[in-house]
Design a binder for these strands. Structure first.
Lengths: 235, 235
DNA sequence: CGCGGCTTTGATGTTCATCAAGTAAAGTGG
DNA sequence: CCACTTTACTTGATGAACATCAAAGCCGCG
């Protein structure tokens, strides 16, 4: 599947952007306008690569809508998924300020819109607006922190515990619902929790057999939240 | 062992501090002097806690000399080691700018000296000095990035590969020598790579039997660097 | 000197990866 | 739109990798 990314230079809407509070609240109207003029909003379809490992970092990117996975591919061709996140996280930018090239790839798990601002413009804003810099530091730290914390949570659990944790993560953090369409394949879950896909599938089957979840295709319903939480804690 | 941390307010030496290049190179002499006046240099003996999980974050801390481990303790009382680093990394500060309390503990693996600067002073410097802010962002990003990268490297390997990797990490990144005094117990290595200490020890024994390493107590000599690298890559 | 913690090794059992084979689903080309 | 191809999913069987348990030796420290 080769889909050409849909670049849209929208009419300026940054002044009223939902995400303005994130880090841009310290900018005055002039600066916001400058950012607005210079930005590109790019739409990606499910499955598309937003940026690849090794690509030059030109833009400060953040997710406006959608769902993405951050990952890398090992020398043996195995995918390691670092995190899966919704908007309000700056996963693209965890190395944008100390490296030239992306260390990790980012792809869209659902149709997504990414706001791209020239990284030099952001650096200029940091230079002249300390309040902005401080907010940005907080946002970047939080993003990295979440990644680190996720990895600690996963690595302390066994197979069943990891899968319970991931299901609760999707239900709680991503979809805010006991019923949701799983946005990733079984293999991708395997790549996130560092287990084999066969055993991920097996565990899903066991959870289904034990009445903990109900599945139809990729739609998942958590039928017994308590049991799942116990498994996540115990595992 | 209870040792009272040795707080020393040294004569101002920040102007000539080796670490000044890190992020403080953008400060003018007045600011450096202000930082200098306000800072505490605290010495910690091997084994001491520098800051504990849940403690309030008051200072921006960085390691001047020594070796530290960043870790947390799970609900079951197991230690998870996040990273082990030398100076020039800002491991204490990965959540200093977006949280009130330390999420992770830091302790000294070797006698260490930590420079402590009131976090509010640092925040003020960010607010008024954009160049400083930019450098700080780069340093913080790099620190987080290294932690994330370490965890990816570890999790893609099996037991033997993880241990080979860790030995190469100590030899290459920490001690710059094929022979070194291992600063951590076998159990701590286990807590770093998420394996049981019995199997860590077993693997050490195998490496010894195969002539890959030589050990006398905690002194380790890498006898066959090539083999160790192969195991680290293959494993 | 004796105690407790760290280390070591072996034996045993559990957990998980791997392999294989089959089914369902989804994309592809005529 | 249907046949074809590929990819994802599923399950069982097998073996490898790793955890756990137990017992003994070592070392440092009070």
């Amino acid at each position: 599947m080769v889909v050409v990314a849909n670049i849209q230079k929208r009419k300026c809407s940054c002044l009223s952007c939902d995400l303005r509070d994130l880090v841009f609240s310290n900018l005055d109207e002039d600066d916001i306008r400058r950012v607005c003029e210079a930005k590109d909003e790019i739409s990606y379809s499910k499955g598309e690569i937003i940026h690849g490992e090794g690509e030059e970092i030109r833009d400060f990117k953040y997710l406006k809508t959608g769902l993405v996975k951050l990952f890398r591919v090992t020398g043996e061709g195995d995918e390691q998924i670092i995190t899966i996140t919704r908007p309000y996280e700056f996963v693209s930018n965890i190395n944008a300020f100390h490296e030239e090239k992306y260390r990790y790839s980012l792809s869209a798990l659902e149709d997504s819109v990414v706001c791209c601002i020239k990284i030099d413009l952001i650096k200029n804003l940091i230079l002249k607006n300390g309040g902005f810099a401080l907010k940005l530091i907080a946002a970047l730290s939080k993003t990295s922190e979440n990644i680190i914390s996720l990895s600690l949570e996963i690595r302390k659990r066994n197979l069943a515990g990891r899968i319970a944790f991931v299901l609760l993560y999707f239900a709680g953090e991503i979809y805010h619902s006991r019923i949701f369409e799983l946005p990733v394949s079984r293999k991708e879950i395997a790549d996130l929790i560092s287990m084999s896909s066969a055993n991920v599938i097996r565990t899903f089957s066991e959870f289904r057999r034990d009445g903990i979840i109900k599945t139809t295709g990729r739609t998942i319903e958590i039928a017994d939240m308590n049991k799942l939480e116990v498994i996540s804690r115990r595992g």
